[in-house]
Amino acid sequence: MKEQAEQRPVLSVSGLDVSFRTLRGEVKAVSDVSFDLRRGEVLALVGESGSGKSVTTRAVMGIVRGNAMINAKRMELAGNDLLTLGEDAKRKLRGSVISLVFQDALSALNPVLSIGDQLGELYRTHLGVSRKEARERSIELLRSVHIASAERRIDDYPHQFSGGMRQRILIASAIALRPDVLIADEPTTALDVTVQAQILDLLDELREELGMAILLITHDLGVVARSAERVAVMYGGRIVETGGVDAMFAAPAHPYTAALLASAPSIETVERLEPIKGSPPNLIAPPPGCAFNPRCTHAGELCTKIRPELVTSAHGRSHACHYPLVEIAHAG
């Protein structure tokens, strides 16, 4: 029974749709997205800008801005049904059960409050501790993300830290209440390679220590290869392929996944990189059939007529393609 409980998803999403009303029409930002995230694992959401990665995770957290219309068949977080919870109940889950690391640390941190005030507010608001205890906990939190002289730097302001240190502070605020799920939205954007590696190592260390599940949003395939166990590739608001990182990188089934891999540089690259020609689809009026068909070099007769459904294999891989590059045995 204990083993079954550990295998139960800490976050389960099925049939998620998110759209926005605009003057030009309805933007279908996310369409029929489903995924499970198990305790302690890292699942990467990968795709070009505008593919729906961030909107998906913000819909789960209930922080989508604007006139969003959100529908889903199921959204469960650590035993909580997010579709039936009220706003006050959802607010209590944010930070304590699910938390978010934003990609722009300088914008996410308040420039006129010290780091101690910003971290301490989390403990005072959620746990009701005294100001003194909140300060002590905040110092320990900075130490946990390897910020030197934490007892002195707790009184510093965001502008007094480097980009990498600010990112560590964002991570500290996200893990302060030891959440079950951590969403990391492009956590290494605008950081140099050395600092990127340090941040990724820190996230992995904290995942091991706290037993968190991490939903990693990125367009950097190098980050995926380094940090994730499973990957879900998004295009035009849909998940078009999922699977284990090693298997998918070695033999992608969907042409879009293959195109992403072909356009990414690596240390072994000796030939010219192949960019993905064309532009992402207009989500107000997407093309008929498969949204990738105008850019796909493997498109066939069905691709412009019928939208392919996500087909799951017996080994946990799935793809949404009429003419996959790799045939996978379908689940019975």
Rank of each mutant, 00 (worst) to 15 (best):
M1R: 11
G244T: 03
S107K: 00
G66T: 12
F20G: 13
R137E: 13
R39F: 08
T22C: 02
A314S: 14
R307P: 09
A253V: 11
A184T: 08
R178K: 08
H322E: 11
Q103F: 08
P265K: 02
R137N: 09
A134Q: 05
Q7S: 15
L215G: 13
P9F: 06
I199D: 10
D155F: 05
C290Y: 02
E268F: 11
L83D: 14
S12G: 04
E301P: 00
G128Y: 03
L261Y: 12
L85A: 12
L43M: 08
L302V: 08
A291W: 04
K92Q: 06
S149N: 11
V245I: 14
G25I: 02
Y157L: 00
A5I: 09
I115M: 13
H322Q: 09
I154V: 01
A285Q: 07
A250F: 02
P288A: 02
A225T: 05
P252I: 14
G50R: 05
R8D: 13
L191T: 10
S54F: 07
T22V: 09
N110A: 07
V46Y: 03
L325Q: 01
E48D: 05
L191Q: 07
F292T: 10
P255V: 01
L122K: 12
I154W: 01
A197F: 11
L210S: 09
G211K: 02
L215T: 07
F35S: 06
P280S: 03
N80Y: 15
S162G: 03
L325M: 09
G164M: 00
L261T: 08
T242I: 15
L37I: 06
D246A: 11
A259K: 11
P158T: 00
D155H: 01
L200T: 06
A331G: 11
G300E: 15
G163E: 03
L16V: 02
V55R: 00
L221R: 04
V18R: 00
L170W: 08
